[in-house]
Design a protein around this nucleic acid. Structure first.
Lengths: 225, 225, 225, 225
DNA sequence: ACATAATCGAGACGGTACGTCCCGTCTTGTT
DNA sequence: AACAAGACGGGACGTACCGTCTCGATTATGT
């Protein structure tokens, strides 16, 4: 089910297993130069064509309808060329997802409120991208069946994003802009969850003002006084 | 693709199209009981067996692995008996999901805080049910492919639940427990989203105290003072 | 697989099991009048509609494509109404075949040659009827699986027809028109087979002169002098 | 419905479309061997296993009962491997039939009478093979639904066989053994038809002497003097 | 220059599930 | 009873993809 060939390699940077030790297990005859494997090197153009086709097919047919044969056909590539790179449909999808994640904007530091709104707004755009929603839904749905996949996603994609929110909030606590005893973790879930919940309730794009309202409401608290 | 037969009927109560207007087109001779279609009526036992088997198979194999042939076999039912009721895998899944949704507890009215915590706690239990997570993830992922399905879900399942939250919050505003200008909609997304976001980040059950922390943080607001 | 209900009855005259003792096993309450069964009598209109629909569907779809559901629909009849009369598809087909068989023309007696040509010409017309060819092909193909059916066909349809040929030939021997030691059986197979073989080689109708040529050739003999 | 792929190929020799022009569209670089389609070539072992299984299943279950799933299972082959070669059940059956047809014995030339008896005797053996009867009955019955099939059968199987008879008869005419004005076509139908008609009237094997009687009767002619 | 070796596109392979069709039986209320 | 209607469990149909496996052709490196 998983990696079997020694020198297996994967494109897609962010979602990889870290460090690409591909040369490590290679036969290496002479011992010195470049951890290069013998034989024809893999085509990087194929890498790109496959990922692009995967995103495209995915966006049209959804996670259930994504079909390797179609991806191969659109990429102008043999099926084996895909299976040489990814062990299966889900792993391909993970890398396709990663290729869609826009980097969150760096906190500009003016105020916690503005930073949070900017971060949420970036997520809002992604959530408006149906491709993102679907890829990420597949991931969630398949989580139990492919825990390895889920863990990699959590480690490589989800947690770094949460960390950005956490950093902004912690900085707010430090500068006194936020309460000293604010529950940073809870706040992260409240904020990021609001976008998810909103995305879920309808097919339409989330309206621009939504992020502001959410942030303000959380900052103000609901309780009277 | 969708319903074509006039008197088509679906089981699964909560997720239905409202009111079962099946009698509407029937000949109706005398007045009341006659709203009957001719022929052998559909077996309600089959309805139940199919839904039960669907949930069971689903829980074992995930949305991708859910297989109508297996559901039919376990329910002791011919495949046609399933396709007579649901046009496809996804629609079956929608009703299976609806059959899993526990009714949210009635607001007991002591305080808004306690009511909210109770509601979130009920959702937390569902979110801890992997079957629920998967079904709902599939639903989300397939949303664009099956907008009809998504709309039915929103109308029959999601919105009624949001309405319960909204009622609690509005009552809080009325009693003065919450700020007069509280953004009730934003608050609903913040609260329900927090559970979703939390469920998404790991496979483990959500800890009991999470709901309390979330509610308290939202009630207090993050801002200093 | 075969008859189970006591009072089962079949329409279709020629192909029946002889004598229709239907009243014999009926409950018979009072003991005297008319071997009538209680309850609503079977509709003879249904009998006719079913046979007609069977022939019609058959002619369109061939033996493999003949489908009871379609016959029932076209006859405006419930499926059970068919199964009440015939135990299965093949038996229905046998009666449908019998309803197609035109009676062979009575030998007019002018000469053996003319009689044979007339008989062959009648068969030629049937063989030109694709419905006949198909029904009879099904019968042949299914012979081994349904020996009972085959035997009934042989006894009720095929042998009486051969007997007509045989009678003509025997009369020819008696009148001195044919050789005294003519092998009547072989001649019957030669003549009737020629039509079958000719029908088999192409989809087109058999040309009118074919029968004459065949009869003349057989009468003359191939051998020189 | 029919062949669409350019280089489509079918096993089963005798029943093929003549000459396997598969190389025609291939790129053909050097000159000879290159008439190869790209990709993995079809397994000839699968060809053989499928045909063998088809004949076997057929012999057990008859034409109606022949079931591709069973053939695939017995041949140890995926269903797609069958459908890649034949568009449907009937076409498979045609090739299976062709694989059953024993080659007619070469005319040995001693006398027309002996040659004809030998030819009929070969057909008699086939007709005694229930598998042959059924396959050929299906073919006949399906003729109108699948005219293409029927034509191919006529062209590849039936006509070449008739030609053999015709050649024998023509030689007889040439040597003076037969009448100069003998109607060769009619004679062919008389002879081959006799076997068919005889096979049709009963389930039992045709008796050995039948062929002799038929040939002698036709040679002698029925007419007195 | 030439062997070695891993890649490429193509597409066949054994499977599994799909959604449809029809079988022959069973269950309604009506005639 | 028999009727029209139509649901039932079952099973084969032909299609679509899965992930694996040959094919001949290509493209690098290491001698």
């Amino acid at each position: 089910m998983t990696e079997t060939r020694p020198g297996s390699r994967k494109p897609g940077g962010q979602a990889n297993q870290a460090g690409e030790p591909s040369a490590a297990q290679a036969p290496e005859r002479t011992a010195d130069t470049s951890g290069r494997r013998p034989g024809r090197p893999r085509s990087e153009q194929a890498d790109r064509a496959i990922l692009a086709a995967a995103v495209e097919v995915f966006a049209e047919s959804g996670p259930e309808g994504l079909c390797i044969e179609e991806v191969a056909a659109r990429a102008g590539v043999g099926k084996a060329t895909i299976y040489r790179r990814w062990p299966g449909k889900e792993d391909l999808m993970l890398d396709a997802l990663a290729s869609l994640e826009a980097p969150l904007p760096a906190a500009k530091g003016k105020s916690v409120r503005e930073d949070l709104i900017a971060l949420l707004d970036a997520m809002r755009s992604e959530a408006g991208d149906r491709r993102y929603v679907r890829l990420s839904a597949l991931l969630l749905g398949e989580g139990t069946r492919y825990p390895r996949l889920m863990d990699r996603y959590a480690a490589k994609v989800a947690q770094p994003r949460q960390e950005i929110f956490r950093a902004v909030l912690r900085r707010g606590v430090a500068t006194g802009e936020l309460r000293e005893d604010a529950d940073v973790d809870a706040a992260v879930y409240l904020l990021t969850g609001a976008i998810m919940a909103r995305a879920r309730t309808s097919q339409e794009k989330i309206e621009r003002g939504f992020c502001k309202r959410v942030v303000d409401e959380l900052l103000a608290g609901l309780a009277a006084r």
